[in-house]
Structures are given as C-alpha cells and as structure tokens.
Amino acid sequence: MLTAILVMVAIAVVTGLVLGWSAIRFKVEGNPLAEKIDAILPQTQCGQCGFPGCRPYAEAIAKGEADINQCPPGGEEGVKKLAELLGVEPKSLDETHGTPKPKSVAFIDEQICIGCTLCIQACPVDAISGAAKQMHTIIASECTGCELCLPPCPVDCISMVTLAEDLPHWKWKHPVVMLKKVA
C-alpha cells in the first residue's frame, strides 16, 4: 500500500519536474497565432481596422477582441484565409471600415510641396524621403498605399495614383471557357 503510494508520488514529482522544466526551456516567445494572422494581413499599416497597424490587429483577432472582416486592403480573400486559419465561418467585409480599392501609391506634387515633413512623420513604412524645407518624394516601390499621408498635408499636394497594368506586372487572365450546352 505504502509502496504504491510512494511510487505514485515519485512518478508525480518526476513528471512535474520534467513538465516544469520544459515549460521554461521550450517557452514559445510571443503569440504564435498572432504571428500566423499577421502573415495573412496585407501589411499596409493603414489602420482602417481601427488598430494602429497590422500587428496590433492580428493580436486583437488572436485574443478574440476584433472580428476577422475589418481589413479592406486584404479584401474578401483575406477574410477567407483568416476564416480558414481560425476555423470560423467566413463573412463579408465590414463596410464601416472601408471598401477594397485598386492598388495605388501616393504621389507628391513637387510644385506645391512646401517641405513641412508632416507626411514623413505620418508614413508608417518610411516610404517618403525629404527634409524640412526640402522637396519630399514618395519611394513608390515601398509605398503600401495606406493613404495616411493625405490628411496631415497642409497644402493637399499628395494624391493617390492607381497603378496601371504594365508588362512586368501583367497577369494571364482566367481563361473563359465557353462550355457547350449538353442536352
């Protein structure tokens, strides 16, 4: 009887120690679910979801504090992917957060720009180069099209330019097959 109890206690102690040690040794840094959600989000950092960037939104989804349909740049496809990851029903985009727009980049009219640096401070990805009282310009290849530079501009010299399709970015379209009616 006593032996049995002692054996059970010994097993409990050993397992407890192993589990305790591995909890410290193999601790996962950060929230792996938030990482996965963040990988799906489009990284425009536009804040249309109501959070200051994609990462905070991902963390909010992971905690269950935000819905999956608040990201207009990700579009319906993004919602679908998030639904798949989280194992929930996909839903349509919440229009209160905005609607998807074609991909565009900001453009600074250099004739009007006064070099106030307000847009530089607003850009979440440092895609604007310039200095005080110097001309500012957008680094188009790094612009995510978040539109965050538009409101702070005091002279309204920034506009969004929709990216036109050119040869390097051309895609084959889905072949439309005219299926013959089978009687």
Binding site: L41, P42, Q43, Q45, G53, P124
Partner: peptide
C-alpha cells in the same frame, strides 16, 4: 508585404 512589415 514582408518588406512593408520589416520597414514598419
């Protein structure tokens, strides 16, 4: 997107 995340 990866580049934007890194820069952000």
């Amino acid at each position: 997107a990866d580049l934007a995340r890194e820069r952000h």
